[in-house]
């Protein structure tokens, strides 16, 4: 019985957050969400979810403090190096044929993968004709992304990742170390527009040649996954590319027939015109 009441409390909490502030977490995968809510309760010293819901409704500043806890910001540079290697080898040659390139990195969190992408584009000589839109709903994470300052101690792992991803230069050329921080080179963010965008409630904002959205869909339920995939489908040019996280797939989604896999293992897909099937 207790669990059932807990589920009701979670429903009420999500409804309150949506109705009061417009953030819609109602279609997030439930088990991960439940865990995160329970963590919040503990962290803020509540006994029940309902007690927190009440404070959320009446205290905007408290809401703003907790909302970002619902976004997962775990990421790293060149995360899954084989993905970046294959992006470089299979997709970049195709992108090179365009006079200008637009890339949307949806759910970029603290930006590590945006800088990874920028490095890759630089090394392939197409950075200057590319615009990258890096978006997230988490304003704090986005600010970190914009600043491009990371912990120096992570750079060792990132260097290894970079090399495994087929990096052509020395990774150290892309940042300078100051105290315990690594400051990413300004040249990498020149063509990047960081913007607040919520995949659940906002719509598309342009025609893209490549969309990266990695390890975001796993937090959504099927219905929301389908909705967001449709958003990507609408947003891509004909024959545009979509890159998902290593455990995400378009297979079994309602968009399955609108894309074909280019690299099954690394989850790179290409939009195909439905009439051609």
């Amino acid at each position: 019985m207790k669990t059932d009441i807990e589920n009701i409390e979670i429903d009420l909490f999500l409804e309150a957050v949506f109705k009061c502030y417009g953030y819609d977490f109602r279609h997030y995968a439930r088990a991960s969400l439940k865990r995160r809510i329970k963590k919040l309760i503990k962290k803020n010293g509540y006994k029940r979810i309902n007690d927190m819901t009440s404070d959320i409704l009446h205290d905007r500043s408290f809401f703003l403090k907790v909302v970002y806890d619902f976004s997962i910001t775990v990421t790293e540079m060149f995360r899954d190096p084989s993905f970046y290697r294959n992006l470089r080898e299979k997709i970049i040659p195709y992108l090179k044929t365009y006079p200008f390139i637009k890339i949307w990195h949806a759910g970029c969190a603290t930006g590590e993968e945006v800088y990874s992408l920028a490095i890759l584009l630089k090394e392939e000589g197409i950075y200057n004709k590319t615009t990258i839109f890096a978006t997230d709903f988490n304003g704090d994470a986005l600010e970190t992304a914009r600043q491009g300052i990371y912990s120096l101690k992570d750079m060792q792992t990132y260097t290894t990742n970079y090399q495994k991803a087929g990096g052509k230069a020395s990774f150290a050329d892309y940042y300078h170390a100051k105290y315990k921080s690594a400051i990413m080179s300004n040249a990498l963010s020149q063509n990047v527009t960081f913007a607040n965008h919520n995949l659940v409630t906002d719509s598309i904002f342009g025609e893209m040649h490549l969309i990266l959205c990695r390890n975001v869909l796993i937090y959504f339920n099927r219905e929301l996954q389908n909705r967001v995939l449709s958003l990507f489908n609408e947003s891509l040019v004909k024959k545009g590319f979509l890159a998902l996280g290593s455990k995400e797939s378009i297979q079994f989604s309602s968009l399955e027939n609108d894309f074909k896999p280019i690299d099954k293992k690394n989850k790179i897909f290409q939009k195909i015109k439905q009439a051609n099937i």
């Binding site: 995968a29 991960s32 997962i72 775990v74 996280g245």
Partner: peptide, 21 residues
């Protein structure tokens, strides 16, 4: 559970993954 992913069971007896902390 795949390496580097958390594995969770949903109430409707499906499996979901997460890359939380």
């Amino acid at each position: 559970a795949p390496p580097d992913y958390h594995l969770l069971v949903e109430d409707n007896e499906t499996l979901i993954l997460s890359s939380d902390e």
